[in-house]
Amino acid sequence: MSRSVYDTILSAVSAARRAGLDSADQRMAARVVLLANDTDLSPGIAQLLVDQIYLDICPPDGSAARVLP
C-alpha cells in the first residue's frame, strides 16, 4: 500500500477528529478525501482502505489513537 494513502487517511481522520466529528463521520471524511485525491479508486475500494487503516489509527480496544497534532 502506498504510504501516501496511509498519510492521506491519517490526515483526514485527524482533521475530522479535531472538528469534533464522530467515528462514522471521520471515516466518511477520509473516504471523501481519498476519492478526491485518487479518481481511479472506486468508492468500495476507498471504503475498504479507510476501514482497514482506521483500525490502525483508532484501535477498537481503546488503546491510544494515532492522530496528527
Score class of each variant (00 low, 15 high):
Met1Ala: 13
Met1Arg: 12
Met1Pro: 11
Met1Asn: 10
Ser2Cys: 06
Ser2Ile: 10
Ser4Lys: 13
Ser4Thr: 14
Val5Lys: 11
Val5Glu: 03
Tyr6Gly: 02
Tyr6Ala: 03
Asp7Thr: 11
Asp7Cys: 06
Thr8Tyr: 03
Ile9Ala: 01
Leu10His: 15
Ser11Arg: 14
Ala12Trp: 00
Val13Asn: 07
Val13Ser: 06
Val13Cys: 06
Ala15Arg: 15
Ala15Gln: 14
Ala16Pro: 04
Ala16Ser: 13
Arg17Ala: 12
Arg17Lys: 15
Arg17Asn: 12
Arg18Asn: 02
Ala19Arg: 15
Ala19Gly: 12
Ala19Ile: 12
Leu21Asp: 02
Leu21Thr: 05
Asp22Pro: 00
Asp22Glu: 14
Ser23Trp: 06
Ser23Val: 15
Ala24Pro: 00
Asp25Lys: 11
Asp25Pro: 03
Gln26Thr: 05
Gln26Pro: 03
Arg27His: 00
Met28Thr: 14
Met28Leu: 14
Met28Ala: 14
Met28Gly: 00
Met28Gln: 12
Ala29His: 01
Ala30Met: 04
Ala30Pro: 04
Val32Cys: 00
Val32Gly: 00
Val32Lys: 08
Val33Glu: 01
Val33Asp: 01
Leu34Val: 08
Leu35Gln: 11
Asn37Leu: 09
Asn37Cys: 10
Asp38Ala: 03
Asp38Gln: 08
Ser42Ala: 15
Ser42Tyr: 11
Pro43Cys: 07
Gly44Phe: 11
Gly44Asp: 13
Gly44Pro: 06
Gly44Leu: 14
Ile45Ser: 04
Ala46Ile: 04
Ala46Leu: 06
Leu48His: 10
Leu48Pro: 03
Leu48Cys: 02
Leu48Tyr: 10
Leu49Cys: 02
Leu49Phe: 13
Val50His: 02
Val50Cys: 01
Asp51Gly: 03
Gln52Asp: 08
Gln52Thr: 05
Ile53Gln: 04
Tyr54Pro: 00
Tyr54Ile: 03
Leu55Glu: 07
Asp56Ala: 13
Ile57Ser: 03
Ile57Gly: 03
Pro59Asn: 05
Pro59Leu: 08
Pro59Ile: 06
Pro60Asn: 07
Pro60Met: 10
Ala64Leu: 10
Ala65Tyr: 06
Ala65Asp: 05
Arg66His: 13
Arg66Lys: 15
Arg66Met: 06
Val67Gln: 10
Leu68Trp: 06
Pro69Tyr: 00
